[in-house]
Deep mutational scan, measured.
Amino acid sequence: MATDAALRRLLRLHRTEIAVAVDSAFPLLHALADHDVVPEDKFQETLHLKEKEGCPQAFHALLSWLLTQDSTAILDFWRVLFKDYNLERYGRLQPILDSFPKDVDLSQPRKGRKPPAVPKALVPPPRLPTKRKASEEARAAAPAALTPRGTASPGSQLKAKPPKKPESSAEQQRLPLGNGIQTMSASVQRAVAMSSGDVPGARGAVEGILIQQVFESGGSKKCIQVGGEFYTPSKFEDSGSGKNKARSSSGPKPLVRAKGAQGAAPGGGEARLGQQGSVPAPLALPSDPQLHQKNEDECAVCRDGGELICCDGCPRAFHLACLSPPLREIPSGTWRCSSCLQATVQEVQPRAEEPRPQEPPVETPLPPGLRSAGEEVRGPPGEPLAGMDTTLVYKHLPAPPSAAPLPGLDSSALHPLLCVGPEGQQNLAPGARCGVCGDGTDVLRCTHCAAAFHWRCHFPAGTSRPGTGLRCRSCSGDVTPAPVEGVLAPSPARLAPGPAKDDTASHEPALH
């Protein structure tokens, strides 16, 4: 009773807030009518008042009428009001819900409408889902798969039609296919003929059939049928067999079959498995989609049935006599038709004709302190090069084509190399640097090759510096006499390219 009084008091307290929050009759008014909170006449009256005075006034009048009803109607109103779709449509209802007392429970059932309790003993237990329907569909599909699609060729003596089998029958139906081979029951999904010589313990000319048996419980189990008994694959494991010639990621696949039913060829011909030897223990289905393919039931050349050999690369099948050149017997292992072999060759040939990528240039590290003349020119003028003790990398590039010797140069053309002071002394051009340390401070000019250098860098042994005729380390061993002091540049003949010694390969005349 306390809860009923509290709900009535809360409705009177929030009546105006609810009326202002509800700006549309749908969905709240319609939901109240659906849950029998508002009768039909009051529903029509509220809609009429909404058209006349507006939605807030109409709902305020409806809530005032609701306060005169019993506690069950008020409880049902609060339940409908706080439904998710009403809270989404009328956003101003959320503060009312947040301020609702926590001790007021809106989930209690309506009085007088409590459903009768059902004894637990009368409640049926839930049924577990079964796979009976899938099993029945598999039974119905198996006879259809064994139905012949056409008439065999005159040369083929193997013609068999499976008798119709009602689904209610649980007995196995067997077809006489000759040579002791028996087909599987209607619940078998796949059958492959297997030679009895590969099964340990088999006697006589009995041949087993590799099947997948579907049981009534819905589970499946792969086994071997020899005669009327089934054997699990673990009985046929043979770890010492060295003649297993397995197909790549293979499961067994029928390579020879008669049109209309699988079996042995007439005249004692023995149908073979995809792999010879003992049956392997793992009978998992292969991951290669080509091995799941269903080959055609007629020859791809003459479009006739009979004894066919199936290609492992495509769905086509052929007569042995229709092949070019014809085959006398079934080859062992994987067999592919000429079209598949030709496609494989065409895929391999473009790969062989692809040009080989060019090898990157060989990189040879230079000892610290040495650099090529090109690196000396590329440096920024007026700045010493940083990191001189790091190992430089010199790339061996292809030799350029031989060019004509340089033409003779006048001494005026070499004027930018040297600057003559007032006393006739050779001065260095701006930006000249030593080729060893890279520093341009207090550098000297070689009178023979006009290269800038430090005496301490080229002659670290402490050799005394002569007063005139300074030469760098590369030119100090040259027998050519030094030019007379005061000459602007060496003779043009000295600039012609010539053979250089091994220790002077990195010091070429550089223009500054």
Rank of each mutant, 00 (worst) to 15 (best):
A2P: 15
T3M: 15
A6W: 06
L7V: 01
L7M: 04
L10M: 04
L13E: 07
H14I: 01
I18R: 04
A21L: 01
A21Y: 02
A21R: 01
D23C: 01
P27D: 00
L28C: 01
H30C: 04
L32S: 01
H35N: 07
V38K: 03
P39V: 00
P39E: 10
D41S: 06
K42Q: 05
F43A: 00
E45L: 03
T46V: 01
K50Y: 00
C55R: 03
C55N: 01
C55I: 13
Q57Y: 05
Q57A: 13
A58T: 02
F59Y: 01
H60M: 04
L62Y: 02
L63M: 00
S64C: 00
S64Y: 04
L67T: 00
S71K: 13
A73E: 07
I74A: 02
F77P: 00
W78I: 02
W78C: 02
V80H: 00
Y85T: 04
N86P: 02
L87Q: 04
L87D: 04
E88M: 02
R92T: 01
L93T: 01
L93W: 02
Q94A: 14
S99A: 00
F100H: 06
P101R: 08
P101A: 04
D103N: 05
D103T: 02
S107K: 07
S107P: 02
Q108V: 07
P109V: 05
R110W: 15
R110Q: 03
R113W: 06
P115H: 10
P119G: 06
V123Y: 14
V123T: 08
P124D: 05
R127A: 03
L128S: 07
T130R: 03
K131C: 01
R132N: 00
A134C: 14
S135H: 15
E136P: 15
E137L: 07
E137D: 13
E137Y: 15
A138S: 08
R139S: 08
A140D: 11
A141T: 09
A141G: 13
L146D: 15
L146W: 14
T147V: 09
T147E: 15
T151H: 14
L158M: 09
A160D: 09
P162I: 15
K165S: 05
K165W: 11
K165G: 04
E167C: 14
S169Y: 15
S169M: 04
A170H: 15
A170I: 07
E171I: 15
Q172A: 06
Q173I: 15
L175I: 06
L177K: 11
N179P: 15
I181L: 06
Q182P: 03
Q182D: 03
M184P: 05
V192P: 06
P200C: 14
A202K: 02
G204C: 05
G204P: 11
V206Y: 09
V206F: 07
L210W: 05
I211G: 06
Q212T: 04
F215Y: 05
E216C: 05
S217F: 04
G219F: 05
S220F: 03
K222W: 01
I224D: 08
G228E: 06
Y231N: 07
Y231T: 04
D238P: 15
D238C: 13
S239V: 12
S239R: 12
G240K: 11
R247E: 15
S248R: 03
G251I: 13
P252T: 09
K253L: 06
P254G: 03
V256R: 03
R257P: 09
R257S: 08
A258L: 07
K259N: 10
G260S: 11
A261P: 11
Q262L: 14
G263I: 00
A265M: 15
P266D: 08
P266A: 10
G267W: 15
G267L: 09
G269Y: 06
E270Y: 14
E270S: 07
